[in-house]
């Protein structure tokens, strides 16, 4: 019997090596796998490269991981936002490398890695300083910039409902980067708000089929973030 569910976040994150590339899903706080980030801080891996849309806010979650000095490099589209004090301090002090990637290029680089595509040409960044040093090529009279796939060792994902096979559905805008990152890592670890029986998810509605998922941990605390009328609802 396949069972990808593990009992604790510590088990879920076991074996992450120093120097790993770690993708973290979410957009702002929505869909961000907070319990897995906390567990990554506990787990102790260092010298990490983090791929995420944002660079954390306040002193919790990703900001706390940065604050603990465990991240060497961050690849993101929007590092500076309200409350991104930890990022800004570390960056200014030269303690954190930053690669700025337009949001759609970031999503597509991740998608490409998950789909076995080495690179692609995009019109985004043509004529801007972010295209510097990159191959530009004309197709049908329009210029495009070559971008390369971006895969990871580990992806940390938050889902809404998951079964022991690893099939996932997401909640509203909580899907964001999660569904794409789930495809692009050698080890995809899901923090899910609720477990269902195998067969309990509508096959037509599954967004991330279990083939992409390696470990699942149930964090019912995630339910706290759900609106009251959804908490009792079954999928």
């Amino acid at each position: 019997m396949i069972n990808k569910q593990v009992g604790t976040t510590a088990e879920a994150l076991s074996g992450i090596a120093d120097g790993s590339v770690v993708m973290i899903g979410g957009f702002g706080s929505v869909g961000q796998p907070d319990a897995l980030i906390e567990a990554l801080i506990e787990q102790g891996a260092r010298d990490l490269t983090v791929v995420a849309n944002n660079a954390g806010a306040g002193r919790v979650g990703l900001a706390k991981l940065l604050d603990a000095g465990r991240v060497r490099r961050i690849i993101c589209s929007y590092p500076r936002s309200s409350g991104s004090v930890v990022f800004e301090d570390l960056f200014r002090a030269g303690l954190l490398e930053l690669e700025i990637v337009p949001q759609g290029t970031l999503a597509e680089r991740i998608r490409a890695a998950g789909a076995g595509i080495a690179g692609f040409y995009t019109p985004t960044t043509v004529g801007t300083i972010l295209a510097k040093g990159k191959e530009t090529r004309e197709f049908s009279g329009r210029l495009y910039v070559l971008e390369q796939a971006l895969g990871a060792d580990v992806a940390l994902i938050q889902a809404w409902r998951t079964d022991r096979i690893g099939n996932c559905v997401y909640r509203e805008t909580g899907r964001n980067f999660n569904a794409v990152m789930a495809t692009a890592a050698r080890t995809t670890i899901v923090q899910t708000c609720g477990m269902t029986e195998v067969g309990g998810l509508d096959p037509e509605a599954i967004v991330t089929p279990g083939i992409f998922v390696h470990r699942v941990v149930h964090i019912p605390d995630g339910e706290a973030a759900a609106p009251a009328h959804l908490k009792k609802e079954e999928v």
């Binding site: 706080s29 849309n53 509203e172």
Partner: peptide, 28 residues
């Protein structure tokens, strides 16, 4: 307020009839 439903400015929004959700790669 539905905490799972925000816009790109990270403000809470609502969904109109006929609305849909998708992941970031499809969005772009």
């Amino acid at each position: 307020i539905d905490p799972w439903l925000i816009n790109a400015g990270k403000q809470h929004v609502t969904l109109r009839p006929g609305g849909s959700f998708f992941h970031h790669a499809d969005s772009f």
